[in-house]
Design a protein around this nucleic acid. Structure first.
Length: 586
RNA sequence: GCCGUCGUGGCUUAGCGGUAUAGCGGCUGAUUCGUAAUCAGCAGGCCGAGGGUUCAAUUCCCUCCGACGGCUCCA
């Protein structure tokens, strides 16, 4: 693909950069179209992104709505059709400011002032439109073949909520129409898998206006949640964790000691009891710390791994709530590990292995991210350095690749985040491991070492699922509601062809129920196709057991799976198969 | 919290200044019918809440609540 660079030279663009160039050019064409339709528009940033491109625009008092987008897209097509050449030029800083002043582009001027004095200021023009940009770009507008405006939203100038909100127009672009279509199909597939929709269809959970962001688990959802928790208990017992439960509400004093009152107050719910301030816990760590501090400890007890399925409440901004993905109340599969300095690497490695095992179970791939000290944090530089080194060292020892996210750690320590990837290639932050030197200091924790000296333990905070609610949301979308047998709310459904074989169907149902298989009998006077429709596509039952006269005669069962395959076997064979799958969580 | 859109029976939805459609689901009856919808009947809605304009508001205006798409933030 031929592109033009800001020095005026044209050349072949590396394959992996093509999409970026196309989308960047699309952003310019979008801006040009907007400027034609709204001459008073002033432009902020208009970059290419992972999914497409956008342009942030100040439209003054003009309010755009979705219905305006068609006209903008149409104008973009005109610009493409006109096949304008795209030409770069370079200006000195002063001339650049002058040009942008003439063209009423205050945001561009601010942008210029943000740039390094020595940075060359390049511009690209196509027809009457000029934009400051490093390029490269397509050579002619006609080479922009496949694009689409996808939406409209507000966005803060420079992504800072203190700044003015601009209008963001989103779009996407590809090198071919086929790729654009595939992308849109994938979007549709994501919509079909939306856990809010599937959750409603399968009766997994609900929300009420009386508690926005506070999920209700329905009986079916509770089965999934409990199945996950059973699995979690097994893993943690095996891995040397002890389980605790700590109070949901504790005195404000505790939160002042932990640092939450100073660093996390805005997200905390508070209440008054007997004329004193209490807080509803947004995190479980202070509870875990108090359990540790309950009695003196010897170095022989370390590492001490205290696990807690803790229900936390956080006052998230209402605009951020999103199904089970972003709620105000959730269950963390938390654990706090108290240990000696020398145990850091091994403990972190152990946690990583555990989390890896969980994600592998569900077929998720994941990426690791190391987040360092944020601005609003507590503790000494030395401790932060030591903690950050501890995490890095563990990752390096295990030879795991990771990226660094500067300044994104928790207020008490740096963290390793697990970003898992679902079957549609989307990533979700779930597991996290945080190394904390602060909390033990704040609560003056200690243990006695082999020389009878008091030593300060170090803490790990960690979760595997992250939030069980969010994890269930992710599983729902990943499996499109077709949960593996061990998680499925209903594991088998007996579908009766006609009343003639009802006794046999009842017999099969009872056999499965006695074996603790979640099973129901559908003996309604309906056609078999009708019952399959509901069982397979709404309830998403892993196994439909069709019982008619044929099965009664042969003493068999016809097993239909969710991919519409049917096999016949004896009831005993089926029981063995399904029991194996449930017990081994396949 | 901010920008935009939206809010009609369990779900999906039609409609519009004169108190409201239809399908699915539910119930009842008939049908006993082998792998994605058998037929008929019935029930079910203070059209998100409050206020305003009007002879009259589900429909127009305002406020609030909630949802959705983004932004900021995050498990």
């Amino acid at each position: 693909m031929k592109v033009i660079y800001n020095d005026g030279k044209t050349g072949e663009c590396p394959k992996e950069e093509e999409l970026h160039v196309i989308r960047h050019t699309a952003a310019h064409v979008l801006a040009q179209a907007v400027k034609r339709l709204y001459p008073h528009a002033a432009f902020g940033y208009g970059p290419a992104t992972e999914k497409g491109f956008y342009y942030d625009i100040d439209l003054g008092d003009t309010k755009l709505s979705d219905s305006d987008l068609a006209a903008i897209e149409q104008e973009m097509r005109e610009i493409v059709k006109a096949n304008l050449p795209i030409k770069p030029f370079i200006l000195s800083r002063d001339d650049a400011v002058k040009l942008m002043t003439e063209r009423n582009e205050p945001y561009k001027i601010e942008h210029i002032r943000d740039l390094d004095e020595n940075e060359p200021l390049s511009f690209f023009e196509q027809g009457e439109y000029i934009d400051m940009c490093t390029g490269p770009h397509l050579t002619y507008t006609k080479t922009l073949k496949a694009f689409k405006i996808t939406g409209l939203s507000g966005a803060y100038w420079k992504n800072d909520s203190k700044n003015k909100m601009l209008t963001r127009i989103n779009g996407t672009a590809f090198s071919t129409g086929k790729e654009l279509e595939d992308f849109l199909k994938l979007q549709e597939e994501a919509e079909r898998r939306d856990h809010r929709k599937i959750g409603k269809e399968m009766n997994l959970f609900m929300f009420s206006d009386e508690g926005p962001g506070f999920p209700f688990f329905l009986p079916n959802g509770m089965i999934i949640k409990n199945a996950l928790i059973d699995y979690w208990h097994e893993l943690h017992t095996r891995s040397g964790y002890q389980e605790i439960a700590t109070p949901l509400i504790m005195n404000r004093r505790l939160w002042e000691t932990s640092g939450h009152w100073d660093h996390y107050k805005d997200n905390m719910y508070a209440t008054r009891i007997d004329d004193e301030d209490y807080c509803i816990k947004p995190m479980n760590c202070p509870g875990g710390v108090m359990v540790f501090a309950n009695e003196p400890h010897s170095y022989r007890e370390l590492p001490m791994r205290l696990a807690e399925l803790g229900v936390v409440h956080r006052h998230e901004l209402k605009g951020t709530l999103h199904g089970l993905f972003r709620v105000r109340c959730f269950t963390q599969d938390d654990a706090h590990i108290f240990m000696r300095k020398s145990q850091i690497t091994e403990e972190i490695a152990g946690v990583i292995r555990l989390i890896n095992e969980v994600y592998t179970k569900f077929g998720f791939e994941y990426a690791l991210e190391l987040s360092t000290r944020p601005e609003n944090s507590m503790g000494s530089d030395e401790d932060w350095e030591a903690a950050t080194y501890g995490l890095k060292h563990a990752l390096d020892q295990l030879n795991l690749p990771y990226t660094i996210n500067e300044g994104d750690g928790a207020f008490y320590g740096p963290k390793i985040d697990f970003h898992l990837k679902d079957c549609l290639g989307r990533t979700w932050q779930c597991g996290t491991i945080q190394l904390d030197f602060q909390m033990p200091i704040n609560f003056d924790l200690s243990y006695v070492d082999e020389n009878d000296d008091r030593q300060r333990p170090i803490m790990i905070h960690r979760v595997c699922f992250g939030s069980i609610e969010r994890f269930i949301g992710i599983l729902t979308e990943h499996f499109a509601g077709r949960f593996p047998v061990w998680l499925a709310p209903l594991q088998a459904k007996v579908l009766l062809v006609s009343k003639k074989s009802e006794n046999y169907a009842q017999e099969i149902t009872t056999m499965l129920k006695d074996a603790k298989i979640r099973c129901e009998l559908d003996n309604r006077n309906e056609k078999i196709g009708y019952m399959i429709r509901q069982a397979q596509y709404t309830e998403r039952v892993p196994y439909m057991i069709i019982i008619g006269e044929k099965e009664l005669e042969d003493h068999t069962v016809s097993i239909r799976t969710r991919d519409s395959q049917t096999v016949t076997m004896t009831p005993e064979e089926f029981l063995t198969k399904i029991k194996y799958e449930v017990e081994n969580r396949v």
